[in-house]
Design a protein around this nucleic acid. Sequence first.
DNA 1: GGGCAGCGCG
Length: 614
Amino acid sequence: MSSVRPVAQTTHPEPEKLALLIDQSKNIKHLKQIHALLLRRGLESYPVLNLKLQRSYSSLGYVQNSVALFNLTQNPDVFFYTAIIRGHAINGLHERALNFYVQMLIEEIEPNAFTLSTVLKACCTLETGKALHCHAHKFGLVSDSYVRTALIDIYARGGDIVLARRLFDSMVERNLVTFTSMITGYAKNGNVDEARELFDGMEERDVVSWNVMIDGYAQHGRPNEAIVLFRQMMKAKLKPDEATMVAVLSACGQVGALGSGQWIHSYLGYRATFNCRVGTALIDMYSKCASLEDARKVFDGIKDKDAVVYNAMIGGYAIHGFSQDAMKLFKEMPEVGLHPTDITFISVLSACAHAGLISESWGLFNAMKDEYGIQPKVEHYGCMVNLLGRAGRLEEAYELVKSMSIGADSVLWGALLNACRLHKNIALGEKVVQFLLQRGLAHSGTYVLLSNIYAAAGNWDGVARTRAMMKQSGVQKEPGCSSVEVNNKVHEFLAGDTKHPKSKDIYAMLEEMSKWLKAHRHASQTEEVLHNMDDEAEKERSLKVHSEKLALAFALISTKRGTTIKIVKNLRVCPDCHAVMKLVSKITGRKIVMRDRNRFHHCVDGMCSCGDYW
DNA sequence: GGGCAGCGCG
């Protein structure tokens, strides 16, 4: 190498060339090499190159390196400030990003539209958003489309969807991104239909707009519409990306659409390995579609698993009641250098709850607080209440709920009520419902559970009163809906449904099932029939057409002998249907796997994996 | 010399 510097310098790459090299560096090693080269040539503080270095370090996640360079910069201008704010914002260091913005204002450097849209990215609260909105006015940036898009985003995510829409409507030029931003706002806020209206009105859509809409359906209880929209996307010849797949897989898991989920798996190419995001989505889908072995295969194939991947697999074991496997994976986490998260604890605690492991649960619950420094959330309490309730320790469960410093939600109260139902404890059930009514927290599930508690104890007065309360408050029972997938198509059934094309055959099968059940001396478990029917025969008739039984009958006539039957129900399975599933599994020799709102039931040869507690 | 939107786990 020549040691004659002046000569060498003229033959070295020009700054423009170096700038390009920085932009093109794909990893930290690369970048550091170029940085070293700049240092050797005394070009480190050459403004353009310095700026580019900072940006590249930040985008590779090395914000500290950017900060070090920033601190060496003499009189950083608006470009440098914007870069350092952005570096922190994209790496989730929101508070520090805001601090740099404040520092910039103190230095009396005026932010431009780039700065403002960047700092808006780091703004987490509605209050900060409003303050920045004022700044936008002050600096005359409020009509800039990037600033405005960011503002729409902030307001929509902060829950002020009306204001977000007002900003959107007042924009002179709205583009694909603005629309997508507004649609995202609606979707995240649960206004899926408004989102769809905007989506349908768009002149052009890209993969992101489709993804947002599909995910909006998937995350707001409308998984079937998510799958339908995905098919339309494919028809429109748009190439789905990873985000599309993650959203659709979530939807497949929710409805138990194993066939569709497998199709996506094959579209992704049945690779031996997936990244964490796609891998997690596949694990979740397979777990919820009762294919735990496939979930595990995907899990094993993921290299560099993160905690989220573990959470998904542990959660899979948990809903199937495989507590030992869940615990085993949980114990493996520290061994591979992963820290359990709050979600991990929800999964292991629910696994323990399903298996009735009381001392283990208390141990985990306390360790979570004391050793891992994770504050229990309402969901963690929910697991404990489920567990204690199932074990009949109702007062202990009630005391736990009352002792909480955070507010209990309707799911937690529901867990307590379910325990009252299981142990026929009317007194506590009434107390809880009274409590909920006073605070306006009662919803349809509350009433149904209370009614079930009365019915279980044969208290028909109580049932009638509950019915009257429901009517008075205008609450309607969420209709039970069961689905079963046959030939990649999800068939849905409501109670007493006659809309299915094969309805006649289904009802014939139900008659046949009745005969089997009679022969096996099955006594209908009418205790939880909601209505006060005087006639026992009438109660039986209403039980016979429960949605899960229709789904079972349809599966029996339309699937091959010996194959596993998989049913998904949106509510908790009713006791009579549960008993029937077990019996039918024995009579037909088929495995019946049913997922209800809470967990999986694997019925084999007359026994259920839940041990008859759910 | 710079900027905006989408994904997972109970």
